[in-house]
Every structure is written in C-alpha cells, then in structure tokens.
C-alpha cells in the first residue's frame, strides 16, 4: 500500500480509537517482558491480607490503631509536616460506628468508613486535592449528560407530533419503501417462524 493511502486513512476520526487501542495493546504486551517488581518501601503500607480479620480485630481490615478523639492512628504519608492533624481521622469513629464495633467483629469495612478511617484520611486529607478533581470529573460528565438529555435526547417538546409526522412522511412519501416493507414482511414472518421452531 502506498504510504499516502495509509496517511489518508489516519485522517478519518472513526479509525483513530482503533489505532490508539492497537498501539496501546502493543505497548501493554511489551510490558510483559519488562522486569517488574514491587518496591517494598511504599507509603501507607497495609498488613498482609486477612491478617487483621484472623486476629479478630473488630474493625478489620482497616484498623490502624489510635483512640477516638485522643490518640492519632499510625499512618505513613509522604509529607507528614504538611498535615497537622495527621492520623486523627484514622483514629476516629462516629458513636454509631463505635456501637456497631462493640457488637460484632465482622463489620469493619462499614465501620471504618463512616466517616473516618484510613481511606477517608487519604481521600479527604493527605490527598484531598485528588478527590476534588475526581468529583469534579464526575460533576462535569453529569453536567454534560444531563444537559444533553434535558435539552435534546429526552426533550419531550420535540417529541410526539413532530417525530410522528416525520415517520409518516418518511413512509407515505416513498411508495417504494412501502412496497419493500410489504415484501419483506412476508419474508420476515417466514423466517421468524422457522427460527421459532
């Protein structure tokens, strides 16, 4: 193929996602031969899987120590000096959560995120700016979607009469279409019957 023809194909928007996907896939598969290993020196390290629940902690798997409103939990962020009340959120439990933790050891997930807990500390405090962005992304896409549906795709004002007329015009204007419809009708019924059996 001549290179010009190839380049012309690249100018069609429809081909671009596919080309992008293809190049991304190639790079991903190259990743399989790259030597990879997890660096054990990480931020916000968590205990081994199931360790806390096996020990029977009431708020497993999110127990990071600390006492409610008095002692901060243990937490290991990048810049501890930028966060003045570090660990307090991790150590905090709402009264309701405290009550639930006293009755059963199996509700740790719910308890430690209501509100407070480690993930909340990261989401709202040490990396709160990320969450602002994430929720802004959410908000923006909903603005786009709801604007489109309120003003266009779901807009009842241009519904009913106009669309019906369009349909009618489309059918009545073209006798050819009508004839085809009739012809195909029979064919389709026959096929449908065959398929049902």
């Amino acid at each position: 193929m001549r290179i010009g023809v190839l380049w012309n194909k690249l100018a069609d928007p429809k081909n671009i996602p596919r080309l992008f996907a293809f190049s991304l896939g190639i790079i991903l598969i190259i990743g399989l031969i790259v030597p990879m290993a997890l660096n054990p020196d990480q931020l916000y390290v968590r205990p081994a899987p199931q360790e806390q629940i096996d020990e029977g902690l009431a708020i497993a798997p999110y127990d990071r120590g600390g006492e409610v409103l008095s002692q901060p939990g243990i937490i290991n962020p990048q810049y501890p000096d930028n966060a003045a009340s570090l660990g307090m959120i991790t150590g905090y439990m709402s009264p309701l959560a405290q009550w639930i933790s006293s009755i059963s050891p199996y509700f740790g997930t719910s308890i430690y995120s209501s509100p407070g807990g480690l993930v909340d500390e990261i989401l709202y405090y040490t990396r709160g700016f990320d969450t602002i962005l994430e929720s802004s992304i959410l908000m923006m896409s909903f603005i786009i979607a709801s604007w489109l549906s309120v003003n266009y795709t779901m807009n009842r004002k241009n519904d009913e009469s106009e669309i019906r007329e369009d349909v009618k015009k489309a059918i009545s204007d073209s006798t050819k279409v009508a004839r085809e419809v009739k012809a195909n009708d029979a064919k389709a019924r026959a096929k449908q019957l065959r398929r049902d059996n």
Binding site: L38, Q42, L43, Y44, V45, R46, L118, V119, I122, L123, R127, D130, T131, E134, S135, I137, L138, M140, S141, F142, I144, A145, L148, S149, T153
Partner: peptide, 28 residues
C-alpha cells in the same frame, strides 16, 4: 496491584470516573 492503602484510595474515585465518562460518552 500496588496493595497499599494509597492504591485503594486511588481506585475508589477512578471507578466513579469510569462511570461518569461512560455516561457522558453514551449520551453523546
């Protein structure tokens, strides 16, 4: 795969973003 609390905190909003983008794009 990073397996730290940070990783979990990064997944959470990422999921919601996926949802949001799907909605906007399907509407378009």
């Amino acid at each position: 795969a990073v397996g730290t609390d940070l990783a979990e905190a990064l997944i959470l909003p990422g999921l919601v973003v996926e949802l949001a983008e799907t909605l906007a794009i399907s509407e378009i």
